[in-house]
């Protein structure tokens, strides 16, 4: 009996029962989600193929200029110099700045919400932190563009540049940057945007540390903070790390707010206070009106980089979660 016939008899002679039909349509929706991811990869890779094939993966990732019609200043010869390095550096650097600020801050807030705050205050604060996550990024962007960037230049930038900036050139002010837009500004705006994520995940994992562990430590004469520092946070560290990675992924892909404050200059910054460009901001500002086919392939190639990094981060977080599950079974 062939497969088709068997299926027919099993479903009572009808081709598909209502049950099977419904079940299949839901399955199709799941498969659509899988197809979406495959399609994303396939389309981006296929359309950026000239970049990978003609220029090569390593040259594309390491070339520090983005110039479809590059004119050599010495020889006057023209060539295609399309490289992702400025955008990769701008993306990673701004995201790291965001994380350095939002990571510790978010964990501290989570500690406050779970360990110190009275219940009512915790409810109010949690609600407000969730609202921050709900603000559309273009609204944060316009605030960054016209308000925060000025504040940041006159405070944070000035403090950092006039202290550690004197020692480390990477944190020194750039006299050639007449604007208030920089990789640093983008990083600070990202910090605002990702802090709710760090808080939300840290709050959950801190809360899941068993009371018996806290009491065991408090019961031997530890202060509240010592118990947090030596027992709660170490026990929750893998989960917190997972949350920080998720937040990092969010920062890497954030587009509009970064586009509005990073300065949009395709250069590898030599100071955090220089304008730069992120992968997402480059795509956002250029993809709509690009005509050069090589440049178009380059922009889609940037998309591939962004996709690979964000999917990679999801995989890492997944592996961390698995380890976390194991740790909890053991305790």
């Amino acid at each position: 009996m062939d497969d088709r016939l068997r299926r027919l008899t099993r479903s009572g002679g009808r081709l598909l029962s209502a049950d099977a039909l419904f079940r299949r349509s839901t399955l199709v929706a799941v498969l659509a989600a899988g197809a979406l991811l495959v399609l994303l990869f396939a389309v981006l890779v296929a359309q950026s193929w000239p970049i990978w094939a003609d220029r090569g993966i390593v040259p594309f990732l390491t070339t520090p200029t983005w110039a479809p019609n590059y004119v050599d200043p010495v020889t006057g010869a023209t060539s295609v110099q399309i490289g992702a390095l400025p955008m990769i550096v701008g993306t990673v650097l701004s995201s790291i700045i965001g994380l350095v600020v939002a990571g510790p801050l978010g964990v501290l807030v989570a500690v406050f919400l779970v360990e110190y705050s009275p219940r009512r205050l915790a409810i109010g604060l949690t609600f407000l932190v969730e609202l921050i996550a709900a603000i559309p990024s273009v609204v944060i962007g316009i605030w960054g563009l016209y308000v925060f960037s000025i504040f940041s230049r006159d405070t944070f930038q000035w403090w950092i540049a006039s202290t550690i900036g004197r020692v480390i050139p990477f944190c020194a002010e750039d006299p050639a940057n007449p604007t208030r837009f920089s990789v640093f500004t983008a990083g600070m705006v990202l910090a605002v945007m990702i802090v709710p994520m760090v808080v939300a995940v840290s709050r959950e994992v801190i809360r899941s540390v068993p009371l018996s562990l806290r009491e065991g430590h408090t019961g031997m004469g530890a202060t509240r903070w010592e118990t947090i520092r030596h027992v709660v946070l170490p026990t929750a560290r893998i989960g917190i790390l997972g949350g920080v990675m998720l937040a990092f992924g969010r920062a890497l892909g954030e587009t509009i707010a970064v586009t509005m404050v990073i300065g949009n200059v395709d250069q590898v910054p030599t100071s955090v206070f220089q304008p730069g460009q992120s992968i997402a901001s480059k795509i956002a500002t250029n993809l709509g009106d690009v005509t050069d086919q090589v440049e178009l392939a380059g922009l889609l190639g940037l998309g591939v980089v962004l996709l690979v990094v964000s999917v990679g981060l999801s995989v890492i977080v997944r592996l961390l979660a698995r380890r976390l599950g194991g740790a909890y079974v053991a305790s």
Binding site: L213, G219, M220, A222, V231, P234, T235
Partner: peptide, 21 residues
């Protein structure tokens, strides 16, 4: 309270060694 708990130790119902130590 810190001194009291150092002078009067406690062992709990469920063994609770610190998992991160």
């Amino acid at each position: 309270a810190v001194r009291v708990r150092r002078t009067i130790g406690m062992v709990f119902q469920k063994p609770n060694p610190f998992p991160a130590m």
